[in-house]
Simulated scan of single mutants.
Amino acid sequence: MLFDAHNRAFAFFGGVPKQMVYDNLKAVVQTILIGKERQFNPRFMALANHYLFEPVACTPASGWEKGQVENQVGNIREWLFTPRPRFACLTDLNDWLALRCRELASRRHPTEERPIAEVFAEERSALRAVVAPFDGYLEEMLRVSSTCLVRVDYNRYSVPAEFAGKAVSVRLAAYRLRIVHDMQIIAEHPRQFGRNHLICAPWHYLPVLAKKPGALRHGVPFIEWDLPIPIRHVRDRLLKQPKGDRAFFELLQLAREAGMEPLQVACELSLEAGIVTGAIVMNELRRLLTPPQPEVISLPEQLRLRSEPLADCARYDVLRGGAHVLY
């Protein structure tokens, strides 16, 4: 969250200051030494080196070093959080805060007869431009369980079935979680807050269906799969047919490479025809995925043959001669 706050602040301000002052929070300062000496968090120093700013830690019990920060915190609470707003998610809250800050910037500057935004526009030239945001995350090595899950912060996230039992690197950011194996991202999920959440991507378990197609009926990743309505109708009708689970698995296997949109169109065509079987849906899907025939090229008159060659089948009679027969 600290890394994400810096990224958002620098993007909002349009640059990076030369110095940043911190009040010795644990995520920034690991150890307070004598005087101004500090042992900073290595991951935080990676952030500071990325943006090229100097972190400065306050002296404990020296309130004068922070100037009017405490008073400004009280003002911000009054301007933004009184009465306390409510939002469905943190994204809505952040969007509203950015909009509210721009509205407050239209107020008069406390020491000048100009709006705050106009004064800050002049000071922005002193900021260092942001070349690229810092990829801030905490990394942990974990082993994937036999059920293709990793446990992070009391929640479980799915991993592709082929990595079951293998060690992976989990990179936890503010709002997302990435799972890496051999320097390749193999899974990505939105981060869940709270406890005992199960986040499953049905595509991760598709190889399991090759051995156990019946999991389509009772498997947790597939029961709660929010499929498009035509695909859902075809699935329900196929599962009532003999070996329908195997037929739907084959459709999903092809749709994994081609995408869900062609499968949805194929299901719609089958439903309109009134005959829904695995073979018919598969035929419609393959027809949609077949590349179109190349267009006929219109040759200019100069490239056309003046005398087209004639087929001379008599040439093959020469090969029938006894001299050319091998025993």
Rank of each mutant, 00 (worst) to 15 (best):
N7S: 04
L97D: 04
H324I: 10
E123Y: 13
T111P: 02
V130T: 12
P17K: 03
E272Y: 10
R38A: 08
R84S: 11
H50V: 13
K240P: 02
T290N: 12
E284D: 13
H181E: 07
L99P: 00
N196G: 05
L177V: 07
L209K: 01
K211T: 03
V208T: 03
S270L: 14
L299W: 14
P17T: 00
V159M: 01
T59C: 11
N71T: 10
A88M: 08
D236T: 04
D4M: 11
A255G: 14
P242A: 03
H324R: 14
L25I: 13
P42L: 11
R43Q: 12
I76K: 03
A129M: 08
R232A: 12
P55S: 06
M183W: 15
A187E: 03
G321Y: 03
L149F: 00
V234N: 10
E261F: 08
H197K: 05
D95I: 06
Q253V: 12
S106W: 00
G165E: 05
R232M: 10
E261K: 14
L99W: 07
A164T: 00
E70G: 14
P160R: 14
V296F: 08
D312F: 09
V159E: 00
L251S: 15
L206K: 04
V296T: 14
G136W: 02
E188R: 10
W203D: 09
R232E: 09
S106I: 03
G214V: 06
L310P: 04
Q184S: 13
L97P: 07
R128I: 03
E113C: 08
A61K: 15
K240D: 15
Q19N: 10
R286P: 04
S158C: 06
A117M: 04
A210F: 05
G219N: 08
D312K: 05
Y205T: 01
T82G: 05
S158Q: 07
R256I: 04
F249H: 14
H6L: 01
V276L: 10
E261Y: 04
G15L: 01
Y327T: 12
W203C: 10
H50A: 03
S106M: 09
Y154S: 13
N94H: 07
I275A: 15
F193C: 15
A279G: 06
L138W: 05
V150C: 02
L227Y: 01
D23E: 06
D236A: 13
C101T: 02
H50M: 11
L93I: 00
G274S: 10
F134P: 00
K211S: 09
G214P: 00
A5N: 06
M1I: 03
I76W: 01
Q72P: 01
L90H: 06
G14L: 00
E295F: 11
A273K: 14
E162I: 07
I34V: 09
S169D: 09
A164P: 08
E139P: 01
L263V: 04
G67L: 09
F120D: 00
Q253C: 12
R315V: 15
Q293F: 09
L209F: 07
V69T: 11
